[in-house]
Every structure is written in C-alpha cells, then in structure tokens.
C-alpha cells in the first residue's frame, strides 16, 4: 500500500529522470509496484581497534570518569558488504530489473552504516578463558570478582548476525543454573 516515502527519488527511476506535471504523474503510475528493496545484515568480527576505556579527561555530573569508545570496521565487514551488494545486484539482473542506486565504492565502505546505527551493540565485557583478554569467564562470571555476573549482551565475543535477545536469554539461563549450583555447593 502506498505509504510515506512512496516512490521517493523518482528521478533515479528509469528514463524519466525527474521532471514534473503530466509526464511525472504517468511515471509514478508506471513505476508504482515495480521496485524491490534489499537490506543486508552481517556479523561483525571483533577487532583490536574497537574497544572502550576510561576517558582520561571527561567526568559525568557526579564526577565519575566516563567511558570513551573506539570503533572501526575492518576488511571483514567491508568484504561482507561488497558480497551483499554484488549478490543483490545479481538477483536484480536475474529478475530482469535495473539497480536504481549505483554500486557504492570501497571508500564509502560499500554502503555500510556507521557503527551503532543498527542498534544491536554487544560485547565489551566479553567472555573468555584468558583473564588478560576477557572480562568474564565461560559462565559470564567476572574473572576479578567472583560474585559479579553479567547476563546482558556484554558477554558476547562477536556481534551475531541476527537479533541477539534469544541468545542473551539462553546465556542468562545457563548462568542462572551455574549460580544456583555454585551457591548450593557453597562456592559463592
């Protein structure tokens, strides 16, 4: 059903190239229902350049130092984007269609959005066996403080391709069972 934004950017469609008046009105009629959209999702592979740390200069309203974040896409994500773009365009060609937007350049990251735009941020308190390279152990328990557990998206070591809620719940349930066992055994 026509909704807000319907046939936006008509000047990029086919031969008309924009215009106004009767010609444009007929272009809208001709092109309505003739487009498909693709949106790509991928997995971000963790990299050493993406991390947070205590900001050495900035404090919040209570005088507590704030976090500052460093973030960088790597070739892994850019290559995924390139592959998605090429695949989408191949599908469009196979269907007998014409891609309306040009293939984005490598410099523009093949059309990747800024980190954080699609809001499934995960990690930061990642789990791992090596305390020097992770915050939590395999049970989402802090290496440094045994009675601290993190059961949100923080333990993730990678950013899952799909919505993370079910995995967060599964990990939380697993951690809950571990806490119960440890408590019963007097280990906490």
């Amino acid at each position: 059903m026509p909704g807000f934004g319907v046939m936006g950017g008509i000047h990029r469609y086919g031969a008309g190239g924009g215009g106004y008046g009767k010609q444009l009105k007929d272009d809208y009629r001709r092109f309505y229902g003739s487009t498909v959209n693709f949106a790509g999702r991928g997995e971000m592979v963790p990299n050493e350049a993406s991390f947070c740390e205590i900001d050495p200069a900035v404090v919040d309203r209570w005088g507590i130092p704030v976090l500052r974040f460093h973030f960088k896409w790597s070739d892994h994500e850019h290559n995924q984007m390139k592959h998605m773009q090429e695949t989408f365009r191949a599908i469009i060609h196979e269907m007998g269609g014409t891609p309306i937007t040009p293939m984005p350049s490598r410099e523009s990251g093949y059309g990747i959005l800024p980190g954080g735009r699609i809001i499934h941020e995960l990690g930061v308190t990642r789990m791992g066996n090596d305390p020097s390279r992770s915050v939590l152990n395999r049970h989402c328990q802090a290496h440094d403080v045994k009675n601290v557990f993190v059961t949100d998206g923080g333990p993730f070591v990678s950013q899952a391709d799909k919505n993370p809620t079910w995995t967060i719940l599964a990990l939380a349930m697993r951690t809950g069972e571990y806490i119960t066992e440890q408590w019963k055994a007097g280990g906490l």
Binding site: P2, G3, F4, G5, V6, M7, G8, G9, I10, H11, G18, Y20, L24, Y28, Y32
Partner: peptide, 11 residues
C-alpha cells in the same frame, strides 16, 4: 519537494 508531494498525493 517532489518526493514530499508524491508522499502526500499517492497516500
């Protein structure tokens, strides 16, 4: 402006 006109008209 053309896009906004189209949104207004075709909906």
């Amino acid at each position: 402006f053309r896009d906004l006109t189209a949104s207004g008209f075709w909906t």
